[in-house]
């Protein structure tokens, strides 16, 4: 527990230091007029907010789909369907994100909406599969004990199974969030907005400073989201388990 806290402190300190170095470098660097305009703090802040907005919306949709689906797929009646559904979710993740995003855009039109849909497809697997695994690893005897003392199936699910599955589920959610932050970069290809625009601009106009700044910002954002996820995991872990 203490080593976990220490590693959390190191992670956020590292992120802050890297961010400070990036800012310091941008302030002191000899920038051209185009670079200066593209890297205007207000603009970048706007891109970051867009980026986070896409990520958060996609994440919420992922949770709303994957957790209930995971719960359903561990119930006696539907247990047999679990491998098939997981295979489909696996396909969503294995397919190259850029391909999915572009193909969907041709079908559903360009813009943030399509970007969000393809992100959801991409990030559903870790949440779904960790929900299933988390629920499956709950000791069957505890479920029986709950039923045996007169808890209804619903009560066992909400008071025993889900709380005990929380640690595994949270780590899946964290993985999904990190995937989403990184992959949301691709939204820019279909006019979806976000920090990806810095990278494409950097590449197209051969502005290396912009390219590097954009990539680093995305990486730092992903690491920050990962850090937040790990904090939540520590806080939300049911007491008595460790």
């Amino acid at each position: 527990m203490r080593s976990e806290t220490r590693s959390l402190i190191w992670q956020i300190a590292g992120i802050a230091a890297a961010f400070a170095i990036l800012v310091g470098w941008l302030v002191t660097a000899d920038l051209t007029e185009t670079e200066r305009q593209t890297l205007d703090p207000a603009t970048i802040w706007g891109y970051t907010l867009d980026h986070l907005k896409i990520t958060v919306i996609a994440a919420v949709i992922v949770l709303l789909i994957a957790i209930p689906l995971g719960v359903l797929l561990t119930r006696p009646g539907l247990r047999k369907a679990a491998p098939a559904v997981r295979a489909i979710a696996n396909f969503g993740q294995a397919a190259p994100a850029i391909g999915v995003i572009v193909l969907l855009a041709f079908w559903l039109g360009f813009g943030p909406k399509t970007a969000i849909i393809s992100l959801v497809i991409y990030a559903i697997l870790p949440v779904l599969s960790n929900t299933i695994v988390g629920l499956q690893q709950v000791d069957a005897r505890l479920v029986e004990a709950g039923r045996g003392i007169g808890m209804s199936q619903m009560a066992v699910l909400f008071k025993v199974e889900l709380p005990l599955a929380v640690p595994v589920m949270l780590s899946g959610i964290r993985t999904a969030l990190v995937l989403l932050v990184g992959t949301a970069t691709l939204a820019t290809f279909i006019n979806g907005g976000g920090l990806g625009i810095l990278i494409t601009t950097g590449v197209n106009l051969n502005l290396n400073v912009v390219l590097i700044a954009g990539s680093l910002l995305v990486a730092l954002l992903a690491l920050t989201v990962d850090w937040l996820g790990r904090v939540v995991e520590q806080v939300a872990r049911p007491r008595g388990l460790s």
Binding site: R141, A145, G148, S152, K159, G240
Partner: peptide, 19 residues
Amino acid sequence: DELRRRIGYVIQAGGLFPH
């Protein structure tokens, strides 16, 4: 469920909820 609330049930190792 109502029946089982009227009957005590003990399993191996107690079956206590760890959380």
